[in-house]
Write a protein that binds this DNA or RNA. Structure first.
Length: 275
DNA sequence: CGGGGTTCCTGGCCGC
DNA sequence: TGCGGCCAGGAACCCC
């Protein structure tokens, strides 16, 4: 499931493939989650940025000077099973949810088995229609994000620390996998509602480490995640906590446990992450 | 406005 | 072999 490392891996591959390409046609699944793809017809791709788990494709409208700031953005959220590919041909794919024909004959495809993904076209920077993006916390590697600021962000909610992380408000781009991994490294019980300044700073460091390492390994492919060139990530072989319920903790050998926490499966070590 | 519950989806897996 | 039932889960959405 694409979290920050997966989405950033996609972004890095995608940007050189589609920059400067003009979108001459598009098709989309009728669902309002995908139909906005059609609104990109006629525009030219300026760049591909990322905020949290959202891909932001800068669009130059027809007649807009190349090199200027894009007037609109094509926003793509990959959801659970979304993937983007660029092809010369038009392969038949029952899971295609949207596609954009480029002027040079190639096609950009969005495939998404479970349809948890989402596509929007908005005026540049206008994210009102996507509440989570609108209220998105700082990028994990933003130098302005430090221990005290992260501590204040965590303290702004009385939710369980893991639930708060998944809300994307204290920090952008952390999903279920990397939340479990970072909390395990930090020795923090996912269910606690208050994190002190020292532990908050440590948790921030572990989040950064977990995300950076996953990015180095091309992301985590549990089942469906693929990059634009269809390769898988390799980080699934490096997970210490997520998906390891019942297996021994790599620090203390206690069997890891899995439980529901605010309707999210959560794995943790009952010893290392005791309250 | 924050927080909690519900919903969207379908392949893979399990048990019989 | 076939099939019903269950699970995974990000974020929008609704309601209090």
């Amino acid at each position: 499931m694409p979290e920050l490392p997966e989405v950033e891996t996609v972004r890095r591959q995608l940007e050189p493939l589609v920059s400067n390409a003009k979108i001459i046609d598009a098709r989309a699944h009728r669902s309002p989650k995908f139909a906005p793809a059609l609104e990109a017809i006629g525009s030219t791709v300026a760049n591909v940025h990322r905020r949290g788990k959202y891909l932001l494709v800068g669009l130059l409208d027809p007649g807009q000077a190349p090199g200027g700031p894009p007037s609109r953005e094509l926003i793509v959220h990959l959801g659970m099973t979304g993937a983007l590919h660029v092809d010369d041909t038009s392969p038949s794919d029952p899971y295609e949810r949207a596609s954009w024909d480029l002027a040079d004959g190639r096609t950009l495809w969005f495939r998404d088995i479970r349809r948890f993904g989402r596509i929007a076209v908005v005026s540049a920077g206008d994210h009102q229609a996507l509440p989570t993006l609108h209220h998105l916390g700082p990028e994990p590697f933003d130098p302005a994000l430090d221990g005290p600021r992260f501590h204040r962000a965590l303290a702004a909610s009385r939710s369980r620390v893991k639930t708060h992380l998944l809300s994307q408000r204290p920090i952008a781009g952390v999903g279920n996998i990397y939340a479990d991994e970072a909390l395990w490294r930090a020795g923090i019980n996912p269910g606690i509602r208050r994190v002190g300044p020292t532990r908050a700073e440590a948790l921030l460091g572990h989040i950064r480490d977990v995300l950076a390492e996953a990015l180095d390994h091309g992301g985590t492919t549990l089942r469906d995640y693929r990059t634009p060139d269809r390769s898988t990530g390799q980080n699934q072989f490096r997970l210490d906590c997520y998906g390891r319920s019942g297996r021994p903790c790599r620090r203390c050998a206690t069997p890891l446990i899995s439980r529901e926490l605010d309707q999210r499966t959560t794995t943790s070590c009952p010893n290392c992450q005791a309250r």
